[in-house]
Write a protein that binds this DNA or RNA. Structure first.
Length: 707
DNA sequence: ACGGGTCGTACG
DNA sequence: TCGTACGAC
C-alpha cells in the first residue's frame, strides 16, 4: 500500500512539479528524445534533470592545510577566539574526528580527547573573525565547478550544479558504454541500491556505468556522475581541495547523497533507490527539517522517518503547516523537489557581525559606536571589492543588534533591525549604521520603557551590519575596471588574458586561483593608481591624505583591498582625524547606556514626536538618511542626528527604485566617470533630498510607551 | 550567558 | 516593503 502510492508518484514527478497526466509527460519525454539535438527549449518540469551537489570536505581545515602544508595528515581543527577555553571549533579535519573531536567543542576539550590536535585560528581583523580567506577559497572552487552546467553557490563551501544539458549531450554523443576511457574516479562512485551480486563493489559500479538496457534516466545520472568525477579531479588538481558530491534528479536528493560518503567520494541516487532510501531516513536528516519543523513533525505527528510522512494526505499536512509547507512536505516524502538550480555564483548580500557574550556585552554608546564602525569598515571593504571585481552595487544597509538584560530572562533581547539606502564610503556607512542603531534603540527603549527604568543591567550582546539588494551595473560599463587600475601596464598581459566579460567571470578570476598573479599586480598598482587619481581631479571625495600605512597594516594579506582601501575616499579611507577621534572615544567612553538615558542630557538626537517613525511610515520610511557632516558624537553621552522623519521626495525616490535601476543616492557616490556611464544606461531620476532634525533625549521616550 | 559569523528563504 | 523567524554550515 505504501509502496503503491510511492511507485505511482515517483516516476511522473521526477522534476518535482506534480504531473497530473503522467502518461502524457512520459510520452513527451520519449518523443523529445528523438529530436534531442534540436535547439528547442526543454519542456518545463517534465524531463528528468541531472543535479549535483558538491560539498567541500571540512573546508576551513583544508584551506588552512593548504596554507600550511605541514598540517596535512595531522589531526587538525580550526578555532576562533583562542583565548577563551581554547576557542570554539568551527571545522574539524577527518584525522581529528577519529578521536571523537567534534564541531562546537572547545579547543580545550579537543585537546583532551586528541592531545596531538593542531588548532589553527581563524584570521582576525579589526578585532573580529575575518572569513575572507575562506570566502576566496570557496570562489576558487566555484570558478572551476561553474565550467560545466548551471552553477549555484549555495554556501561558502557548497555548490549545486544542473548538469542536465551536458549529461544529455554526452548521452547523445559519447554515452558511457561507448566511451573508451572512463575517468577512474567515476568507478569509485557509490551507487545507491546497487546490489553487489557476487562481484566486487567497483566491478558492480563499472557494470552500472556500462549497462546498456538501463532506464534513460539512470544513464543520464551516469553521465552526470562522470562529469562530476572529472570536475572533482580538476578541483583537486587546481586547488588541492577535496570534495564530496551527490548526483541525483533533484537538489534534495543530491544534497542528501553528497553527505553519505565523505570525504572525497561521490554518491549516485538512481530513481529506483529513492523509496528505500527515504523510507527509513530520520526526518531530521532532511534539509529544512533539522529544527523546529522537524521537532513538530516528530512530537505532534509521530513522524520519525521520511517514510512515516507518506501516511499523511496533502490536505492534512497543509492544514497543520500551511499550504506551502504542507505541499512541500508531501512532496519531499516522495522524493519530489522541483527547486531549480539558481545559476548564481555570487552572494546576494554581505554582512559583518559580532557577538559580545557574557561579560563582553557592550554597555556604553561609545563602545557600540566603536564596534559598529569596525564592522562597517569590513563591510565597506567587501563592498568595494564586490564593486571592483563584479561591478555590483548594494542598495540597502541594514543593522541588526541584540540586547540583553542580566537579571531578567525576558524577551528583552529583541532589538529591532533597521535599514536604509546604502551610500558608499566608509564614513557614510558608519554614519548611517550608527543612525540605524539609534533608530532601533529609540524604538527599543520605547517598548521596554517601564522595565528599563527599573533595572539598568542591560547591554548590547550582538551587532551586525549587512548590505543587500546587490545589483550588477549595466554590462558595458567598463570604466569601473579601468578606474580601479585593473589594466595597469606592468602586468596587463597577465590580467587581460584573464579578462572578464561576464559579471561572474570577473568575480572568479580576480578572487581566484592566481594568487601569485594578484600579488604581482598589487604592488605596482599602488603607484599607478596615484598617478591616475591625480588626473581625475573631479573625483568626489578623493582623499590625498588617505592613511595608507595604517590600512596596509590592517590587512597584510588582503591584497586587493589594500590597494583600493588606501586609494580613494568614496571607497572609504578613514581619515586620520576620524581615527584619532575614535581612539579618543574608546578611552573615554565609560558612561553606561542607561546613565545616558537617565542623565536627560540634551543631545543632537532625532525624532521629534510629530515625526513618524519607521513603522508608522511603513516601507517609505526606508528613506532614512543623514545629512553629510553634522554629528559623529564625541562622547558616550552625545548622539548623532537621526532623521527618521524623511521628506517625501526622498521616500518617493526610494520607492521608485527597481531592481534594474541604480538608485541616484547611490549613483552620486560613485566616481563621475562611472556615474556618466550608468546614467547613460538609465533614465535620470530625482535626486534625493535630505532633512536634518535635532531633538533631545526626551524624544526617546514616546508618550505612548511612557505610562 | 559561547556555536560564531554569515548566508538564504518564508512569512506577515 | 520591511522586519522577523528560522534553518544551515
Amino acid at each position: 500500500m505504501f509502496s503503491s502510492i510511492f511507485q505511482n508518484s515517483i516516476p511522473n514527478v521526477v522534476e518535482g512539479v506534480v504531473v497530473v497526466e503522467g502518461k502524457e509527460e512520459e510520452r513527451r519525454v520519449e518523443d523529445w528524445g528523438e529530436i534531442e539535438k534540436m535547439p528547442v527549449a526543454r519542456p518545463e518540469s517534465s524531463d528528468s534533470r541531472v543535479i549535483a551537489h558538491i560539498d567541500m570536505d571540512c573546508f576551513y581545515v583544508q584551506v588552512e592545510q593548504r596554507k600550511q602544508p605541514t598540517l596535512r595528515g595531522h589531526p587538525t581543527a580550526v578555532v576562533q577566539y583562542n583565548s577563551w577555553k581554547g576557542g570554539g571549533l568551527i571545522a574539524v579535519g577527518y584525522e581529528a574526528r577519529k578521536y571523537g573531536v567534534k564541531r562546537s567543542m572547545r579547543g580545550d576539550e579537543a585537546k583532551k580527547v586528541c592531545p596531538d590536535i593542531q588548532l589553527v585560528q581563524v584570521p582576525v581583523a579589526r578585532g573580529k573573525a575575518d572569513l575572507t580567506v575562506y570566502r576566496d577559497a570557496g570562489s576558487e572552487v566555484v570558478s572551476i565547478l561553474s565550467r560545466k552546467g548551471r552553477c549555484e553557490r549555495a554556501s561558502i563551501d557548497e555548490v549545486y550544479l544542473d548538469l542536465t544539458e551536458v549529461a544529455e549531450t554526452m548521452l547523445a554523443e559519447n554515452p558511457p558504454e561507448r566511451l573508451e576511457t572512463i575517468c577512474e574516479e567515476a568507478f569509485k562512485s557509490h551507487v545507491l541500491g546497487l546490489h553487489l551480486d557476487g562481484s566486487s563493489n567497483q566491478d558492480s559500479v563499472k557494470k552500472w556505468f556500462y549497462m546498456s538496457d538501463a532506464d534513460r534516466r539512470d544513464k543520464l545520472l551516469a553521465c552526470g556522475a562522470l562529469i562530476v568525477a572529472e570536475l572533482r579531479l580538476e578541483v583537486l588538481k587546481e586547488t588541492e581541495y577535496t570534495c564530496s558530491a551527490g548526483i541525483a534528479h533533484n537538489k534534495m536528493l543530491a544534497k542528501l547523497a553528497s553527505g553519505m560518503n565523505k570525504p572525497a567520494q561521490q554518491t549516485i541516487v538512481p530513481l529506483s533507490s529513492v523509496s528505500t532510501l527515504l523510507e527509513s531516513l530520520p526526518i531530521k536528516k532532511m534539509k529544512q527539517l533539522g529544527g523546529k519543523l522537524g521537532n513538530s513533525l516528530q512530537a505532534d505527528l509521530c513522524v520519525d522517518t521520511v517514510g512515516d510522512l507518506l501516511q499523511f494526505s496533502e490536505d492534512k499536512l497543509q492544514e497543520r503547516y500551511g499550504i506551502n509547507t504542507g505541499t512541500w512536505l508531501w512532496n519531499i516524502a516522495r522524493g519530489i523537489c522541483g527547486e531549480e538550480v539558481e545559476g548564481r555564483l555570487l552572494p546576494k548580500s554581505h554582512g559583518s557581525g559580532k557577538t559580545f557574550p557574557g561579560r563582553q556585552a557592550l554597555k556604553t554608546i561609545s563602545s557600540v559606536q566603536k564596534w559598529i564602525y569596525e564592522l562597517c569598515e569590513e563591510l565597506s571593504e567587501r563592498l568595494v571589492r564586490d564593486l571592483e571585481q563584479n561591478k555590483r552595487i548594494a542598495h540597502t544597509l541594514t543593522l541588526h543588534a541584540s540586547a540583553h538584560k542580566l537579571n531578567d530572562s525576558e524577551s528583552l533581547k529583541k532589538f529591532p533591525s533597521k535599514s536604509c539606502p546604502l551610500r558608499y564610503g566608509i564614513a557614510k556607512i558608519q554614519e548611517d549604521a550608527l543612525n540605524l542603531f539609534h533608530a532601533g534603540l529609540r524604538e527599543y527603549i520605547g517598548i521596554h520603557h517601564a522595565k528599563m527604568k527599573q533595572h539598568n543591567e542591560w547591554a548590547i550582546t550582538g551587532l551586525s551590519v549587512s548590505a543587500s539588494k546587490i545589483v550588477a551595473t549595466p554590462s558595458g560599463t567598463h570604466s569601473i575596471t579601468k578606474y580601479f587600475g585593473n589594466k595597469n601596464q606592468t602586468s596587463s598581459s597577465a590580467l587581460e588574458s584573464n579578462d572578464i566579460h561576464t559579471q561572474d567571470a570577473a568575480y572568479l578570476s580576480s578572487s581566484g586561483i592566481g594568487s601569485s598573479v594578484e600579488l604581482h599586480l598589487s604592488e605596482p598598482q599602488i603607484a599607478n593608481y596615484e598617478d591616475e587619481a591625480s588626473d581625475k581631479h573631479d573625483m568626489p571625495c578623493f582623499n590625498p591624505d588617505g592613511d595608507e600605512t595604517e590600512v596596509c597594516k590592517a590587512s597584510e594579506k588582503g591584497l586587493a583591498s589594500k590597494v583600493t582601501q588606501s586609494k580613494m575616499d568614496f571607497l572609504g579611507p578613514v581619515l586620520k582625524s576620524e581615527k584619532q577621534k575614535r581612539k579618543f572615544e574608546k578611552e573615554k567612553g565609560n558612561s553606561s547606556i542607561l546613565k545616558y538615558f537617565a542623565s536627560g542630557n540634551s543631545c543632537s538626537f532625532p525624532e521629534p514626536r510629530h515625526v513618524k517613525t519607521f513603522q508608522e511610515r511603513g516601507a517609505s520610511s526606508s528613506g532614512m538618511s543623514v545629512q553629510g557632516n553634522q554629528q559623529q558624537p564625541m562622547s558616550g553621552t552625545t548622539l548623532s542626528t537621526c532623521n527618521l522623519g524623511q521628506d517625501d521626495l526622498r521616500s518617493d525616490t526610494w520607492r521608485s527604485y527597481k531592481s534594474d535601476e541604480i538608485d541616484p543616492s547611490v549613483l552620486k557616490e560613485l566616481p563621475p566617470e562611472i556615474q556618466a556611464e550608468v546614467r547613460a544606461s538609465f533614465q535620470p531620476q530625482k535626486r534625493a533630498n535630505i532633512v536634518k532634525r535635532g531633538s533631545s533625549i526626551d524624544h526617546y521616550f514616546s508618550p505612548t510607551a511612557n505610562s
